[in-house]
Amino acid sequence: MIVLDSTLLSDYLDGRDAAREFLDAHESEAWAVSAIVLYEAQMGAVHGSLDADPQTLTQAITTAMDVLPVTERTAAEATALQEALLERGLPADHPDALIAASAREHGARFATAERHFWDDDVQSVLSVAPYDPRAD
Rank of each mutant, 00 (worst) to 15 (best):
S49G: 12
T63I: 14
F22K: 03
D96C: 04
T63D: 11
L13V: 02
T79K: 08
A129W: 08
D93P: 07
E40F: 01
G15R: 04
H116C: 09
E27G: 06
A19I: 13
T56L: 10
D5M: 07
V46D: 07
G44H: 02
V125S: 08
S10E: 09
Q123I: 01
W31D: 04
A18H: 12
D14M: 14
V125W: 04
S10H: 07
T58V: 01
E72M: 08
G48I: 09
D51C: 10
P54G: 11
A35L: 10
P91W: 03
E77M: 04
E77A: 08
P91S: 05
M65D: 02
T74Q: 00
S49V: 14
L23P: 00
D93E: 11
A101K: 01
V128F: 00
D119N: 13
A25M: 05
E87H: 15
L126K: 02
E77S: 02
M43G: 08
G48K: 10
T74H: 00
T79H: 13
V3K: 02
H94D: 12
A111T: 04
A30V: 08
Y12N: 06
I2H: 00
S10F: 09
D51H: 10
L4R: 03
S28F: 10
A92L: 13
D136Q: 09
E40V: 00
E77T: 07
E40Q: 05
L23S: 00
G89I: 06
H47P: 06
D14A: 12
P54F: 09
H106F: 10
H116S: 15
A113L: 08
H116W: 12
L50C: 11
E114Q: 07
V3T: 13
L23V: 01
E105V: 04
S124W: 00
D24K: 14
E27S: 10
V67K: 07
T71F: 07
R115K: 15
A75R: 10
A111R: 04
Q59C: 10
R115E: 14
A113G: 08
T56R: 13
L38K: 04
I36V: 15
A78H: 00
Q123R: 15
R16G: 03
H26T: 05
P133R: 09
R73V: 08
R134S: 12
A64H: 14
I99Q: 00
R73C: 03
A45L: 00
T62H: 13
A97F: 05
A32S: 06
D24A: 10
P133F: 03
S34K: 06
R104Y: 12
L90P: 06
T79V: 09
P95H: 06
L9R: 02
H26I: 05
T56D: 12
A30S: 11
P130M: 07
S49I: 11
T71C: 06
V125I: 14
S49R: 15
S124P: 00
Q42Y: 08
T56I: 14
Y12D: 02
G107E: 12
L57G: 12
E72N: 09
Q42E: 15
L98D: 01
L98F: 12
P91Q: 02
Y131G: 03
A100F: 05
T62N: 10
L86W: 12
P95E: 05
Q42C: 14
L126C: 05
T112R: 01
T79A: 11
P54C: 12
Q42M: 13
D17A: 13
V33H: 04
D17P: 15
T74E: 00
P133I: 11
V46A: 12
V46G: 11
F117A: 00
E87C: 09
V3L: 14
V70R: 07
V70Y: 14
